[in-house]
C-alpha cells in the first residue's frame, strides 16, 4: 500500500492550496465573527455577504509598495517572512485528515507524508518558524520591531515547553509518536480528550500563546509596540507573516483535533475528511471567540502563567499518565 510519487505530488499541491484557501477565508470568518460578537456587520461590501473580501485583501497587499527601511539588513529582511510562512505550511504536511483511499489502481493515503516521528517533526518545524519572527524583527533595525521580536521569542520559547509537555500524555496513551497511529488508537479505545482533559487544557492555552493570539498577543500588542516584529513590513511581505501566523493557528487546531478528538473519525457515519474539517472549524472558532472575549494579559502575568502554572501542571500530568499507563 504505497503511493506512487506523482499521486503524492498532486495531493501535496491540493492540500497546500486548500490550506491557503482556509487561511484566506479564516480572515473573513474572523472579522465576521468578531463583528457579530460586537454587534457590527463586519465586511459586507465585496461580493455577497462580503465573500470576495479575502480576494480584495490579497489584491491590495500585492499591489501595495513593498518598501523597507534604509538601514535594514536586506537579505534577512526579505527571507524572514518567507521562512516563517514556509515552516508553517510545511508543518501541516504530517497532519492526517483521512483514512486513505484506493482510487482505481492507485492508493491515496490520508496525509501528505507519513513518518513515524511526525509529532516531533511538527514541533521541530514550529521551533524553526520562530526564527522568521526574530530575524525579521532584528533585520528591520527598528526599536519597536526588536522589542516585538524579543517578546515573541521569550513567549514562544516559554510556551513551547508547556506545549510539548502537554502532548506527552497523549503520546504515552497512544504509545506512538506517529499522528496516524494516535488517531487509530483513539478509534480503537476512546478519544483522548476525556482521560487527557488536563493535557487538552494546557495544550490549548499554550497553543493560543504559541500562535500569539489574544489574550496572549503581547508580541504585537498594538497599544504598546505599534505592531511588534512586523512593524516595518508592508505589502505581501507583511502578508506572508500574517499567513504564517494564521497557518500556524490552523495547524495547531488540526493537531488538537488529531491528538484529542479522534482526527478524521466521527461519532457516527464514516465521513473521513468532513469530520476532520468540521472539528477543525469548531476549534478555530474557539480561537476567534477567545479573541472577542478576553483582554490582553500583562507581560509578567504571561510569564508567570507559562512557567509557574502550565509547566508544573503539564509535568504532573505527564508523570501521572505514565504511572497510570504502566499500572493499568
Amino acid at each position: 500500500m504505497t503511493e506512487v510519487w506523482w499521486v503524492s505530488l498532486i495531493k501535496a499541491f491540493v492540500i497546500i492550496n486548500l490550506l491557503m484557501l482556509t487561511f484566506a477565508y479564516m480572515t473573513l470568518i474572523e472579522r465576521k465573527v468578531l463583528a457579530r460578537m460586537q454587534l457590527r456587520y463586519g465586511p459586507n461590501r465585496a461580493g455577497p455577504f462580503g465573500l470576495l473580501q479575502p480576494i480584495a485583501d490579497l489584491v491590495k497587499l500585492i499591489r501595495k509598495e513593498a518598501f523597507f527601511p534604509a538601514s535594514a539588513v536586506d537579505v534577512l529582511y526579505i527571507t524572514a517572512p518567507v521562512l516563517s510562512c514556509f515552516t508553517a505550511l510545511a508543518a501541516f504536511s504530517v497532519i492526517p485528515f483521512g483514512p486513505g483511499w484506493t482510487i482505481g489502481d492507485y492508493y491515496v493515503s490520508g496525509e501528505v507524508v507519513n513518518v513515524s516521528i511526525s509529532l516531533i517533526l511538527l514541533f521541530a518545524l514550529g521551533s524553526l518558524g520562530i526564527y522568521g519572527f526574530i530575524v525579521g524583527g532584528w533585520a528591520s533595525d527598528s526599536k519597536y520591531s526588536l522589542l516585538g521580536s524579543m517578546r515573541t521569542c521569550a513567549q514562544m520559547v516559554s510556551y513551547e515547553v508547556s506545549l510539548t509537555f502537554a502532548v506527552l500524555g497523549v503520546v504515552l496513551m497512544g504509545r506512538s509518536l506517529s499522528l496516524v497511529d494516535i488517531v487509530h488508537k483513539q478509534d480503537e479505545t476512546f478519544w483522548f480528550f476525556g482521560p487527557q482533559f488536563v493535557g487538552l487544557l494546557i495544550f490549548f492555552v499554550a497553543g493560543v500563546a504559541e500562535t500569539n493570539r489574544p489574550p496572549f498577543d503581547l508580541p504585537e500588542a498594538d497599544t504598546e509596540l505599534v505592531a511588534g516584529y512586523h512593524t516595518e513590513y508592508s505589502g505581501m511581505r507583511f502578508g506572508l507573516f500574517q499567513m504564517g501566523e494564521y497557518v500556524n493557528m490552523i495547524t495547531l487546531s488540526a493537531l488538537a483535533v488529531t491528538l484529542f478528538f479522534g482526527g478524521w473519525y466521527g461519532p457516527w457515519a464514516p465521513l473521513g475528511p468532513l469530520w476532520f474539517a468540521l472539528k477543525l472549524f469548531a476549534v478555530i472558532f474557539i480561537f476567534l471567540w477567545l479573541r472577542a472575549t478576553l483582554p490582553r494579559l500583562r507581560y509578567d502575568q504571561l510569564m508567570r502563567l507559562g512557567w509557574k502554572v502550565l509547566l508544573p501542571l503539564a509535568t504532573v500530568n505527564a508523570v501521572v499518565t505514565a504511572a497510570l499507563v504502566v499500572a493499568l
Binding site: I134, C153, A154
Partner: peptide
Amino acid sequence: GAVMVMFLFVIA
C-alpha cells in the same frame, strides 16, 4: 530550535 533561539535572543 530551542538552544539557538536563546543565543539569538541574547545577541539581539
